[in-house]
Design a protein around this nucleic acid. Structure first.
Lengths: 224, 224
DNA sequence: CGAAACATTGACAACTTTCAATTGCCGTGG
DNA sequence: CCACGGCAATTGAAAGTTGTCAATGTTTCG
């Protein structure tokens, strides 16, 4: 129904370095942990694949990561974008339900899942943190459901507001992802994303100095 | 954008009875608990409202429950349907993110949340059960996201398969909910649901002995 | 029986996708 | 330096899908 060529992955060439990085957020055990090393992934390099054993949990140190799933008919659905400080790859089953790739060059902190889970059985605070993290994902997924029943314009507007909120940097947003990524996240085509941007620009709701830079000129209008 | 009249709630007339019911599933502490009483709710009676304190966690003993949210423009989005054995109302914040109503007359086991949460800090098994329950909700929400990027026909087909799987009773499904409920769950209009049913019937993919009974005649076709 | 709620059907409008072509950007090689 | 190729993004036109509005049919229940 929506056949589309998916870009081939270049081979992962992650230079492993036993570096621990400080991160700025406060998501409990994953911030405090002394476990884990950070690894660098180039653009479009796979971090893990759908169906693989979920041996590790990941935290974005820098860059942007996307999780996604390829549907039976070839469409790609992006699960989420993860920015600096976000945790991803935490699963309930033993295998990853989605694949993960670096969007831009990204540094990712890798933590052994088994260590975390066994720690949780002893430390109720860690257990609560894991639960909270999962709850956060759930809340995000639920917002997504609400987003996806809306029109294309509303989806794009909500996407821009979400990005602006997650990366508070005034009114100018640097989008790390392509139009195709945005389209697959919102469940529309790239043409619709592009057209919507153009319309919003024409109405002075946003400005587009470059394809990857969006300036929010009228947030009230974006919120409708 | 999608203005629509929302049916008024009749006043809740839940006859409280201190009855504990045995249930058939195996979802950990909520199955074992000796806490809680079961309460009966008539059709369309509110169980809790969005924004209320999340004092209790609920488990469906019989009947069907829906959670939902009214969007700014008046549209209603249904979060989930909960059938016999399902747990709902478990929150991360202290307030309910969605409202809950009985779809049909339903008996619901009510459990004090505080008891459960404090138990979890002492019993790592309970904590893990809570996490698993949340993980299950997350998985459901994620499937929903995948569903919502599809066409109306695919959504309806997926809905029927989901119901058939959750309530394995041969090929005949008794739908407890109205077309409006289905539409608000799938993010389409009742007309689209109705038309899709008609098309599927014409193609002998399903049969509709009555509006609320669907017979699956060709599951392969439903899966596309 | 009759009213009200629920469901189906039709015609048309609006929105989104599809298909196709063009434009803009950027890095490589002549 | 400029030309060229390749890729991403934009734009246009036509087709397809879904929503809206309106009418009709069906079921439920007092």
């Amino acid at each position: 129904m929506h056949p589309r060529e998916i870009g081939k992955h270049s081979t992962a060439r992650a230079d492993r370095r036993g570096v621990r990085d400080d991160t700025t957020d406060s998501s409990g055990p994953l911030a405090r942990t002394t476990l884990g090393v950070s690894i660098k992934f180039g653009p479009n390099v796979e971090i893990y694949g759908e169906g693989e054993q979920a041996e590790y949990v990941y935290k974005v140190v820098s860059g942007t990561v996307r999780t996604y799933k390829i549907l039976a008919d070839g469409r790609r659905q992006i699960g989420s974008f993860y920015l600096r400080g976000d945790v991803f790859g935490l699963e309930f089953g033993n295998v990853h339900a989605l694949s993960a790739e670096a969007v831009t060059e990204s540094k990712v902190l890798v933590i052994k899942r088994s260590a975390l889970v066994s720690l949780a059985t002893r430390d109720s605070e860690v257990a609560r943190d894991l639960w909270t993290l999962t709850g956060r994902e759930l809340a995000r997924a639920q917002e997504r459901v609400v987003l996806l029943i809306k029109t294309a314009q509303e989806r794009v507007a909500a996407f821009l507001l979400e990005m602006a909120e997650r990366r508070p940097a005034g009114d100018a947003i640097e989008l790390p992802m392509s139009r195709q990524d945005i389209a697959d996240y919102l469940g529309v085509t790239i043409e619709t994303v592009s057209r919507t941007f153009t319309i919003m620009e024409r109405r002075s709701v946003i400005a587009l100095p470059s394809a990857r830079t969006v300036v929010l000129r009228d947030r009230a209008a974006l919120r409708q």
